[in-house]
Design a protein around this nucleic acid. Structure first.
Lengths: 188, 188
DNA sequence: CTCCACATGTAACCGGTTACATGATTTT
DNA sequence: AAAATCATGTAACCGGTTACATGTGGAG
């Protein structure tokens, strides 16, 4: 899937692997991330498949970089991916739920302290969303015109992240409450 | 992680690979799933690591099965996993958001129809939760005593699933609405 | 007789992570 | 001189998926 994230960005403009990592971190981090090493590997694969092309660009004041450009073939592959319907409900793996499901032997106190940690982490994540006014900080793209319609979608995707964190926080608060009043004490 | 899901179930009782798949499907499917093939591979690994032991059990009216039992070593490894704090915020990959993020070239009509499909799927998933009265259908475990505290946790985890679907559905409805009124029409 | 549930596995592949390796250039 | 940022890559490993292969026993 990373390859489509990459094609998506290259569809706007040519970028290097390093640039792509920054784009991903700045704009899609909360629903899609990737390590630099994997980005480089994927770009290589994309190039051998003929979906992108690259050239080395010299910079002054910085090391050279290899800039990738999407090909017509790549654009078509991307369009096909867009048009292909997704699996209706994506299955998501959440280790936290797995652990909580089996957590009783851990004891009430330890369970509550792990949930408290989660709560703080998600509250601070939620604050990150609030502090960023524009939908995404895709600075590189902001100068492009005719992007209003795209921004609408970015905002909707961003909104999912906020709602997810809100839901998560409310659930954690209720879970902590329920465990406090319902679970029997540890035997210490 | 699957190994810990398996150890978690074996911590209640000994089970075969096939049984484990059913347990996973019946009780943890919405936050942890696994294919049979992978369960068998993981059990093999677990056995060579000394975390479980197995013996072949003959059944009448059914093929033999290999039943796995957790060892003392396995119980300790499981307890350590339980006690180890999780990464604060789990990163989750959601292909749907990735696609929506880049979906503008797909056109308004096609975007809306994909979101409609999603909406129906999640609504029906949400109905599944409502129709099951007990927290989980872990029939095999229901006869065990002293499980009340465990059931509290199962219910909390189940509750996450419901809230997630509720959030998802509300988001989809709002997204569809926003796109309908905001996005400019396709040129057909 | 066929299909389904029960039951266990192997092999090829794939997407991703971690760790390692290298080096230019800028800032402190 | 050291640390941070820019920049690109390789290798070993790992968790998981898909497809394949095999076979028992009961139900329709």
């Amino acid at each position: 899937m990373l390859k489509f994230a990459i094609l998506g960005f290259l569809n706007y403009q040519s970028l290097s692997g390093y640039d792509l990592e920054q784009q991903l971190a700045a704009s899609t981090a909360h629903f899609w991330h990737a390590r630099l090493s994997q980005i480089y590997m994927t770009l290589k694969k994309l190039e051998t498949d003929g979906w992108v092309e690259s050239e080395v660009v010299e910079q002054d004041r910085r090391p050279d970089k290899r800039v990738y450009t999407i090909t017509a073939q790549g654009q078509q592959a991307f369009a096909e991916w867009l048009a292909k319907p997704m699996p209706e409900v994506e299955s998501v793996k959440r280790a936290v739920l797995l652990k909580l499901f089996f957590a009783r032997p851990l004891g009430k106190v330890a369970i509550l302290s792990q949930l408290q940690l989660q709560l703080h982490a998600h509250q601070s994540k939620r604050r990150e969303y609030s502090s960023v006014l524009p939908p995404q900080a895709i600075d590189l793209l902001n100068h492009l015109p005719e992007l209003h319609d795209h921004k609408v979608l970015w905002q909707i995707v961003q909104d999912f992240g906020k709602r997810y964190e809100d839901m998560y926080i409310a659930w954690l608060e209720d879970a902590i409450q329920t465990i406090q009043v319902t679970l029997s004490d540890d035997d210490l």
